[in-house]
Amino acid sequence: MILYETTFIVNPQSEDAVIEEKVKAISELILSNGGKIVREDRMGTRRLAYPINKLHQGYYATFLHESDKSVLPLLDRHMKLGEEYMRHLTIRFEADPERVYGDKKEDYKAPREITKRKPDSDSKKEPVSETPATEEADSLSETAEIKIVPAAVTETADSASETAEIKIAPAAVTETADGASETAEIKFVPAAVTETADSESETTKIEIVSSTDEAAVKEQKPADEKPEDEEL
C-alpha cells in the first residue's frame, strides 16, 4: 500500500449534483479496491491558468489515499472515459500529509527583495537629500492637510542643496524637514533656507503659508535665490 495523491478537475458547468457524483465515483473506486482515503481536499471551482476545452474554470478535488498500485490504471481509465473529467493527475505522495494540508502547513517565507540593496548603496552618495525628503513629504501630506506645500518645501530644499557649495548642507536641510514633518508647521522650512538667504526666506515663508496655488511661485523664488547664493 502506497500513499497516492489523486487530483482531478471536473467540468464546473455541470450541475452540482453531477459534480458531486463524479467526485464520489472516484472515492468509491478507491475504496472498493481496498484503498483507504487519508484525506479529501476540495479546492472547488477556480480559474484555470489556460482554457481547457474552451472552459475557463474547473472544479478541483483531491484525494489522498493509500492504495494498491493496481488501482491506478482503474482510476486513470475511469477518468479518461468520463467526459466530465477535464484533467487528472495521480502522484506518489512522499511528504507528511499534515505538513501539506493540515494546520502544520509549512510556512513559506517570501523571498528577500534582492533589488532593494542596490539603490540604497547608490543613493548614499548623491540623492540622499532627495529620497528621504520626498518620503517626509509624504508623511507631511498625511499628517498635515496641505499637500502641495511640503512638496514645494522639498523642492526648495533640493534646489538649495544643489546651489550650496558645501555638501553637508543637504543633510541639514533634511533635518529641518524632519522637524517640519513632526510639527507639521511650515514655518520651520525657512530655517533651512536661512543658511543661504535670510531675508528671502522670510518672504518665501509667507507665500508658503498663504495658499497652494503659489507653489509655482515658490519654485520660481528659489531660482531667484540661486544667484544670491553664488554671491555669498
Partner: peptide, 17 residues
C-alpha cells in the same frame, strides 16, 4: 529558501508559492 525553512516537499497545488 526551502532549506532555510526546512521545507522538503513542494506542493504543486500551491500556486502562490
Amino acid at each position: 529558501r526551502f532549506c532555510e525553512n526546512k521545507i522538503y516537499y513542494l506542493d504543486y497545488k500551491d500556486e502562490k508559492m
